[in-house]
Amino acid sequence: MIPAEHFYYIGAALFSIGLAIVLTKRNAIMILMGVELMLNASNINFLAYNKAGSLDGQFFALFVIVVAAAEASVALAIVLKVYKHFKTINLDKIADIKD
C-alpha cells in the first residue's frame, strides 16, 4: 500500500506547478488552468488524509470541485468580456486604468 506521504508530495508538486504557471504565463486562460491545478493539489491532500476511513476530507473535495466549476464559469464570462473590449487576453496588454 502506498503511504499517504507520497500523495502529499504529489499534492505539493501539483501546487507548485500551478503556482509557477500562474506566475509565468501571461494568457488569462492559462492562469485559470494554473489555478485549477492548485485547487486539485488541495483535493489530493484532502483525499490522501482520508484513506483510513473518515469522510470529512472527501466531502470537502466534493465542495471544492463544485465551487471551482462555479468560479470557472464566472471567470470565463469575464475573460469573454475582456476579449470583447481589448481584443486580447494577454494580461500584460490589459493595463488601461491609470491613476
Partner: peptide, 27 residues
C-alpha cells in the same frame, strides 16, 4: 472589465492558496 479580470485572477489565486493551507491544517 479590466478591473474585473485583475480582481478575478488575484482572487482566484489567493483562494486557491488559502484552500491549500486549509488542506495542510486538516492533515
Amino acid at each position: 472589465s479590466e478591473a474585473a479580470i485583475k480582481y478575478l485572477i488575484f482572487g482566484a489565486v489567493s483562494s486557491a492558496i488559502m484552500l491549500y493551507g486549509i488542506s495542510w491544517i486538516y492533515t
